[in-house]
């Protein structure tokens, strides 16, 4: 029993931190600009493919730096020439703009790298088991993931809460006029924020690429899970996103470990008739079976009962 709990907790934390790594950029952009970047997963994918391309030429480590920079530049261009233009049509238009971007990024990646997965490998220097618990190995690369994720969290927290830049950026969203009056270029601030957020997505891509599958449909397959993280955490709250990531990671991992179903709880359904066949589907589904869709249920429940999310400060 202890073994299961321990392993599940460890797996849950690792998965949660991977989620946070992927979602950090999304929450940065949302908290600073009020834009929910639908194309976030697309930039994450771009990061993975750039990382792959660089790593097979000059190695993984340069890729970890160069790929996010490149993707960040692309992001800034997107903000400068696209998003800024639709900004005046409101948030719905912004959301739709990034929604359209997902199609374009996906197709562009498909055109350049094809539709098959590419062989993006874990760097040799991290390709060994870091430690073994209860006979289960934990690869060093996963520890590296964890490390980067926590580092990003701390750095972001520091920058936003403790530095002048952070203050200016935060003020730019709520009081753009005032900030401009004080001599800051609000447009440029937004452009930088978008670039940084997108670059963070790319960092996640470079790191998750080798661990998962680097393929042109990876953005689509990631699905809306990142939005769940950001919304459950409280739109725009970095700490909230961090906690939500861990929560979702643990929830999912422990759910997989459980084999309970409604039939176990209440005994097998006794009702007869045509409805029974339909009901038996629901009745016999185990928690483990639905584990990966529990976060979506959590999302709906959170939005009903605590609309501003776990740590959000405002209602959308």
């Amino acid at each position: 029993m202890f073994e299961i709990v321990f392993i599940s907790t460890l797996n849950g934390i690792l998965y949660g931190m991977l989620l946070f790594l992927m979602a950090s950029g999304l929450t940065v952009i949302f908290s600073m600009m009020g834009v929910l970047n639908f194309a976030h997963a697309g930039f994450y994918m771009l990061g993975a493919f750039f990382g792959f391309e660089i790593s097979r030429r000059v190695g993984f480590w340069p890729g970890l730096v160069i790929a996010p920079l490149l993707v960040g530049l692309i992001g800034m261009a997107v903000e400068r020439y696209g998003l800024r233009r639709v900004h005046r049509h409101g948030h719905v238009a912004e959301l739709l703009f990034t929604f359209g971007l997902t199609y374009v990024i996906q197709q562009a990646v498909e055109m350049v790298w094809g539709k098959l997965p590419v062989d993006y490998e874990v760097p040799r220097s991290l390709d060994f088991p870091a430690f073994t618990v209860f006979g289960t190995e934990y690869p060093a690369f996963k520890m590296f993931e964890l490390l980067i994720s926590v580092a990003i969290f701390l750095v972001l927290l520091l920058v936003i809460k403790r530095t002048r830049i952070g203050l200016v950026v935060q003020a730019a969203l709520s009081h753009p006029g005032m900030v401009a009056m004080l001599g800051h270029n609000v447009d440029r601030v937004f452009m930088l924020v978008f670039g940084v957020g997108v670059a963070l997505a790319a960092v996640a891509g470079v790191i998750a690429g080798p661990a998962l599958v680097t393929q042109s449909n990876m953005a689509g397959l990631l699905g809306p899970i990142l939005f769940v993280v950001v919304v459950v955490g409280g739109l725009g709250s970095l700490g909230g996103a961090f906690i939500a990531s861990l929560l979702i990671g643990l929830l999912q991992t422990f759910a997989v470990a459980s084999n309970a179903s409604l039939a176990d709880l209440f005994g097998s359904s006794a009702s007869a008739g045509a409805l029974q066949t339909y009901l038996s589907d629901i009745w016999n589904v185990t928690v483990a079976q639905v584990a990966p869709i529990l976060p979506y249920l959590l999302l709906v429940l959170i939005l009903i009962f605590r609309p501003r999310g776990l740590m959000g400060t405002r209602e959308t």
Binding site: L36, H91, V92, L95, G223, P224, F227, V228, V231, L235, I293, Y296, L297, L299, V300, L303, I304, P307, E315, T316
Partner: peptide, 18 residues
């Protein structure tokens, strides 16, 4: 529909996925 705007969009996304 208890919410509007971005939150509404996210709820529908979640329900659709569910």
């Amino acid at each position: 529909t208890r919410r509007a705007g971005t939150a509404f969009a996210m709820i529908t996304l979640g329900i659709g996925e569910l």
